[in-house]
Design a protein around this nucleic acid. Structure first.
Length: 481
RNA sequence: CGGGAAGUGGCUCAGCUUGGUAGAGCACCACGUUCGGGACGUGGGGGUCGCAGGUUCAAAUCCUGUCUUCCCGACCA
């Protein structure tokens, strides 16, 4: 205990310094390393594999709903950004530019994409001629760059990985339906795969995407009570269609602008996983996205080693054949206790301990990342492991949901919000009249921003927390990453 | 981008005030003993002190610039 407190090579407790805890965890869990360029990180294998598992789950859902993947260029001509006014204003400050290539100055500067609406708009204008070409449903897995002033690994990096879906439709109704369909896919994925509960709702006009008509989001709560926007889905109306001249001939032989959508999630999801599930022991990964779901640790003196390893190999083959991501740590020079701590730090959901005592009794010891430890019979092992992984997945979601509920408050006035934030952090439901001025006032006085207008609330507020006029919406306010 | 702190072996840090042979713990390598919650002994290897200039007989140490990280703020997905 006192040893850990003094030894800074261990993880800083969350209660002592949440930011330091976060940085400690991602480094101890070996998820990333800093690159020598400002705000850029290397995704190390354990970190990258979490992203690959997210990709796999999402990609399947995208394809099931009729989308196909494509890939568009990294470079975007400067002139493209002039075409949609709000879009330019929103992204210009954070664009990196390529001004020179092949030893010569470029005639037109090229932006490194911050998002691909413009490039895709340009291409869609070429590809879409008739209502028969619609809907066009494309997704892209890519890297994007936004030159952020302040960076934080995973949550806000200069370059990040994401997917961006871009669709074009005949009608507003169809496009809006698509916008909501993808929002629901995100909700389902984040809640059921990442075990992170979210608030689903619509962004206020000041928080919406640059160039969108309406933006929707799912908002997750970190263990420090701050919010992370975990996914967004936008109805873009005909804004980009007009800017890029994406028209189709309808059934009455009339030229019409298409209605477009875009939607995305990024590697900031990794930051959310860490901050939602992690604890003072380190990372805790939901089984569905854990690169290693089960770690097997053989225990015992040298004279028993051969027998223990043989048994471990047998279990390993069985679990692997069942599709479980299992690894064995049979390094002889490290003590079992060291390994227990190591894999808890790395977030492995389930540990299997096998020693001479277990072999003698035809059993193994299962220990979960959530702190439960029990003995199971060897003939039940596969079934127990599968069941326990499911249990862990569910318990992690339930824990996170309970945490979010415990840290969700409701206020009637700005003064109440200010007082609340003196001692607490979390989501705060409050009435809002719809004016940007009132929204801004909240931010100025509490640093909390409107996260979204939830689709479902327990209680509709009647008055705006700032001006006390009639409330148009009940809004979630929170400090955000 | 403004304010603050920091950068010394893989990690955590000491040394800097007052310039004079680069240190500790952990990690690593070899051998041996250990092994059910961060084992131990003996021996060993590894650092142009972030980078670039400057001052000096001499710079980790003093000065200037610059890069990167962390915190606070402004900006922003």
């Amino acid at each position: 205990m006192s040893k850990e407190a003094k030894d800074k090579s261990f993880i800083t407790p969350q209660s002592e310094d949440f930011s330091a805890w976060y940085i400690d965890v991602i480094r101890k869990a070996d998820l990333m390393d800093y690159a020598p360029v400002r705000g850029c990180i290397v995704f190390k294998p354990d970190g990258y594999e979490i992203w690959e598992l997210c990709q796999r789950e999402l990609d399947r859902r995208f394809k099931e709903t009729g989308h196909r993947n494509a890939y568009f260029p990294l470079f975007i001509p400067e002139s493209f950004f002039q075409k949609e006014k709000e879009h330019v204003e929103g992204f210009n400050p954070e664009l990196p530019w390529v001004t020179e290539a092949g030893g010569e100055k470029l005639e037109e500067r090229l932006a490194i994409r911050p998002t691909s609406e413009t490039m895709i708009g340009h291409m869609y204008a070429k590809w879409i001629n008739s209502y028969r070409d619609l809907p066009l449903l494309i997704n892209q897995w890519a890297n994007v760059v936004r030159w952020e002033k302040r960076t934080l690994p995973f949550l806000r990096t200069s370059e990040f990985l994401w997917q961006e879906g871009h669709t074009a439709h005949e009608t507003e109704a169809e496009a809006r339906e698509e916008t909501m369909r993808m929002l629901e896919i995100y909700r389902d994925f984040v809640e059921n795969v990442l075990a992170i509960p979210v608030i689903v709702g619509q962004k206020t006009p000041s928080e919406k995407f640059a160039g969108a008509v309406d933006t929707y989001s799912i908002e997750a709560m970190m263990k420090d009570g701050k919010a992370v926007q975990a996914g967004t889905s936008h109805y873009l109306g005909t804004n980009f269609a007009q800017a890029f001249d994406i028209k189709y001939l309808d059934r009455e032989n009339q030229q019409q602008y298409v209605h477009t959508t875009s939607w995305g999630v990024s590697t900031r999801l990794l930051g959310s996983i860490i901050m939602v599930h992690g604890d003072d022991k380190g990372l805790a990964l939901p089984p569905k996205v854990a690169p290693t779901q089960v770690i097997m640790i053989p225990i015992g003196p040298r004279k028993a080693r051969e027998q223990v390893i043989a048994k471990t190999d047998e279990y390993y083959a069985m679990l692997k054949a069942a599709g479980i991501r299992v690894r064995v740590d049979d390094r002889p020079d490290l003590s079992p206790g060291w390994k227990f701590n190591e894999y808890e730090m790395r977030g492995v959901p389930l540990r299997i301990e096998i020693g001479p005592r277990d072999i003698e009794n035809g059993q193994v010891v299962l220990a979960t990342r959530l702190g439960e430890k029990r003995i199971v019979k060897q003939e039940d092992l596969l079934r127990e492991v599968e069941q326990t992984l499911e249990d862990i997945q569910r318990q992690m979601y339930e824990r996170a949901l309970a945490f979010m509920k415990e840290h969700t408050y409701s206020v009637d006035t700005l003064d109440e919000l200010k007082e609340l934030f003196e001692t607490k952090r979390g989501f705060v439901l409050a009435g809002w009249c719809g004016s940007e001025a009132c929204e801004h006032q909240v931010k100025l006085e509490t640093k909390a921003t409107s996260r979204n207008i939830p689709f479902i609330v327990d209680e509709h507020k009647s008055k705006c927390l700032v001006c006390e006029e009639q409330a148009k919406h009940t809004v979630v306010f929170a400090r955000a990453y």
